[in-house]
């Protein structure tokens, strides 16, 4: 297990998810979290995205990180999805701008002490253009896991 999983029970990889909107992406990823989250998680994540969007303008491969408050989380987990076609998310801090997200990371965090390190190391990995490209190109969950844990090499 690599640094990605530090402090988090489960990391779920979803390759080439087909979704037509940011809403559909959030719903699919929340469903993939299964019983890691409470039924209220998806609604909270949609509301959060509307109030405070999470698109991050990484060059070449933009990433969105939709999530919800810890009270909607049962056990921490992170879903990492690549999209079959990029989906527009509004940009964090600049809600009038959009990014074409090709990767979406949905952290389900129950406490920042426990899970913050896992998300921080994942975001750090995503700052590497090679890892973003490898994740976006991966055809299977195993390839995605290898892309993150292998450091893009």
């Amino acid at each position: 297990m690599g640094q990605l999983l530090h402090g988090v029970d489960d990391t779920i990889f979803l390759p080439r998810l087909a979704a037509s909107s940011d809403r559909a992406v959030i719903e699919a990823l929340a469903a993939a979290l299964g019983d890691h989250v409470l039924p209220s998680f998806v609604g909270a994540a949609l509301a959060r995205e509307k109030r405070s969007p999470t698109g991050l303008p990484f060059p070449d491969v933009a990433v969105a990180i939709p999530h919800a408050e810890p009270e909607h989380v049962a056990r921490p987990a992170i879903v990492v999805a690549s999209l079959a076609s990029p989906v527009k998310f509004r940009q964090m801090g600049s809600p009038r701008a959009t990014v074409d997200a090709a990767l979406v990371v949905m952290p389900a965090l129950s406490s920042k002490e426990q899970a913050g390190a896992a998300l921080a190391s994942l975001i750090q990995s995503l700052q590497d253009a090679r890892i973003r490209a490898a994740l976006a190109a991966a055809a299977t969950a195993d390839e995605m896991r290898a892309a993150v844990e292998g450091g893009g090499r």
């Binding site: 959060r48 109030r51 405070s52 999530h67 920042k112 913050g116 921080a120």
Partner: peptide
């Protein structure tokens, strides 16, 4: 936005 994920990073 939520004082958990993003601000922790």
């Amino acid at each position: 936005g939520t004082a958990i994920a993003t601000s922790t990073v």
